[in-house]
Design a binder for these strands. Structure first.
Lengths: 162, 162
DNA sequence: GCAATAAAAGACAAATTTATCTTTAATTAA
DNA sequence: TTAATTAAAGATAAATTTGTCTTTTATTGC
C-alpha cells in the first residue's frame, strides 16, 4: 500500500501552443532561406521543422495574414521573409498572432482583473517572469535567430527523432 | 481594402491550464481556512474561487492524491491543509501535479532534445525565463500565499464578475 | 443499524486545439 | 490558352482539455 505521491501532469503543457511552436520554427527556417534568396514550399518547411504538413500550412496562412512572412503562389512560389522584414520582425509578433498576449500580460492564476490595486497572490512574482518573457520576445528578431541557425549554432529539430 | 495586420491569437493561451489555475486558487483558499481550523467543502471552494464546481472537484481529487491537500468524507468533512504541510507545500508541487514540468523544463519551441550541446534558437534566452519561473515556483509556499490572502493583500477572484 | 452528508469514481458531453483532406485560386512557363 | 505548380480556403476529423452528471464509498450523528 502506498501513499500515492505525485501522479505527474494530467496535462502535458508547454509554454507555447503546438501551433505557436511550429510557427516560430517555420518562420526561422523560412528566414534562413530568404537570406540566401531561396523561397521554400510548405513541404520543405514541414520536413525541416518536423511538423505535420497540413497543420503547418494553416499556420503559414496566419503568419502571412499577419504580415510576418510573405507567400507566392504558382511555379517557383513558396514562403519568404524580405531582407528588411527579417530585421524588424520580432518573436512577439509570431506569439501574438498565434497564442495572443495573455501569456505575458494575463494573470498567472487566471483572474480577469489582476493589478497592483487588486493583485492575485502571485501577482508581484509573476510580474517579473512575465516582464522577462515580454522583454525577450520584444527584443528578439527573426534575423538573430535565423543567423544562429545558418551558422550552425542553433537547431530547428532534433537529430535523432526518437 | 486593408493589408490585414494582426488578427490576434487564434488560441487564447494562459501560462497555466485552467485546471492548474483552479488548483492553485483552490489550494490557497483551503489553506486560508485550515489555518483557522475550518474545513471547506467543494461548494465553498468553487464559489470562493469562481470556478465550475464539478471540474474543481476533479482537480481536488488530483491534489489529494498528490498529498497537497487532505480530504475527509462525511458529515463535517471537506478539504484542508495541515499546519505543517502549508509551510512545506510549494507552488511547484501543484503545477507539477496538473501541468507537469515542461513549462519550466521543456524547450520553448518544442524540440524533444534541446540542450547546451544541441540548442534551439531561443534556448539561452529561454533558460533565463524558465529558470526564474522554476525558482519562483520552488520557493513560494502555500503559507506565503495564504497569509497574504488572509491579510487582505491578495485576492482569489475579481470583485465584479461582470 | 440507519439516515444524512460529503468526497471519490466513473461515464459522458462540450469546447478547444491539433491534424487532415479536398477544392479553389493564383501564378508561371510553355 | 493550357498545363503544371503552389498557396488559400473550406470542410471534416481526431485528440485534448474543460465541464457536467450520476453512482459509489466513507464518515458522522442519531
Amino acid at each position: 500500500m502506498q501513499t500515492c505521491i505525485s501522479l505527474y501532469g494530467i496535462n502535458k503543457r508547454d509554454m507555447f501552443s503546438k501551433a505557436c511552436e511550429y510557427g516560430i520554427r517555420a518562420s526561422i527556417f523560412i528566414a534562413t532561406n530568404s537570406s540566401k534568396g531561396i523561397r521554400v514550399g510548405i513541404k520543405d518547411v514541414a520536413k525541416e521543422i518536423d511538423s505535420p504538413e497540413p497543420f503547418t500550412a494553416k499556420i503559414m496562412q496566419i503568419l502571412t495574414k499577419n504580415g510576418i512572412i510573405h507567400s507566392a503562389k504558382g511555379v517557383g512560389g513558396g514562403f519568404e521573409v524580405s531582407n528588411e522584414a527579417v530585421k524588424t520582425i520580432k518573436l512577439i509578433q509570431i506569439v501574438d498572432a498565434i497564442d495572443g498576449d495573455k501569456i505575458y500580460r494575463g494573470c498567472g492564476i487566471g483572474l480577469k482583473e489582476c493589478s497592483e490595486a487588486h493583485p492575485c497572490p502571485v501577482h508581484f512574482e509573476f510580474k517579473k517572469i512575465r516582464g522577462l518573457l515580454h522583454e525577450m520576445l520584444s527584443k528578439t528578431t527573426l534575423e538573430q535567430l535565423a543567423s544562429g541557425v545558418k551558422k550552425g549554432d542553433f537547431f530547428l529539430k532534433t537529430l535523432n527523432l526518437e
